[in-house]
Simulated scan of single mutants.
Amino acid sequence: MREPPMKPALQKPPGYRDPSAPGKPVARPPPRKPTLPPSFRTKRKRRSCCRTCCCFLCFFIVILTIIVLVVGGVSYLWFSPKIPTFHLQSYRIPEFKVTVKTDATYLDARTVIRIEVKNPNTKLKVYYGRTQINAIVGKGESETELGQSEVAGFTQGIKNVTSLKIESSTKNRLIDDKDGRKLKSGYKTKNLEVRVKARTSLGYVVGRWRIGALRVTVSCGGMTFKSLDGGGEMPKCTVNFLRWINIH
């Protein structure tokens, strides 16, 4: 028996793709970076400029500090600044009257004080601001102020010695009856203790420049009239410098 003829194979149309065939991997587009607003964008150039400026400023400050320290040290060694010395030359009370009245005790007094100021520096002048001076007598609870006066500011030359004359007075000063009796007795026997306290500012002069102007307190006295009239060595004063350094 004759076999029927075979049918020709169907031709696949162009672009046909077999669904059962494995597909080729599809390339994905690279991920896009998120777009940040201008305020969140990094500014590398500006940050680097700021860092450079800060480094330069720190370096400049360090160099300037070193220069100032070196110049200050050399200047200190060259000028060798010294604190002026003060001596109490004389302390006179031409008028001293204690009056006991029915209501209270009153004091009238006049003082004349001389203080010697020495500038020991060989390369520096010293200038003094306005000086406030208090004359005091007695000690402890009976300490009494006899008046207050002021000395105008002045400049003292190199290796100079200046004598300051200070006059002060008090009128009808009310004092305690007990203190009045002690002061009157001490004045007659010359056992009355006297002292002077001065507050001023001092600094140094280099050419036309003034350096310093620090506040100081000068305390003189603590002795009696007898010791002052003895003609011995002038009592040296104590300089309270910067409130914590005492120079005798």
Results as ranks from 00 to 15, higher is better:
E3W: 01
P4H: 10
P5D: 02
K7V: 00
L10Y: 02
G15T: 00
D18Y: 08
S20A: 13
P22M: 06
K24Q: 04
P31A: 05
P31L: 06
K43R: 12
R44N: 13
C49S: 07
R51T: 06
C53V: 02
C54G: 00
F56H: 04
L69Y: 06
L77S: 02
P81T: 11
P81M: 06
K82N: 12
I83D: 07
P84E: 12
P84Q: 13
T85V: 11
Q89K: 15
Q89D: 13
Q89M: 06
I93Q: 09
T99W: 10
K101V: 07
D103A: 05
D108C: 13
V112I: 10
R114F: 03
E116P: 02
V117A: 13
V117L: 15
P120V: 11
L124K: 05
K125E: 07
K125F: 02
Y127L: 06
G129K: 01
N134H: 12
A135Q: 12
I136P: 09
I136Y: 05
G138M: 07
E143D: 05
T144Y: 06
E145W: 05
L146I: 03
V151C: 08
G157D: 11
N160P: 00
V161Y: 12
T162W: 04
L164V: 15
K165Q: 14
S168R: 10
R173V: 11
L174R: 15
D179I: 08
L183A: 12
L183C: 15
K184E: 14
K188A: 15
K188Q: 14
E193I: 14
T200A: 14
G203M: 01
G207L: 15
G207C: 15
A213S: 15
C220Y: 03
C220L: 03
S227C: 03
V239R: 13
V239Q: 09
R243N: 15
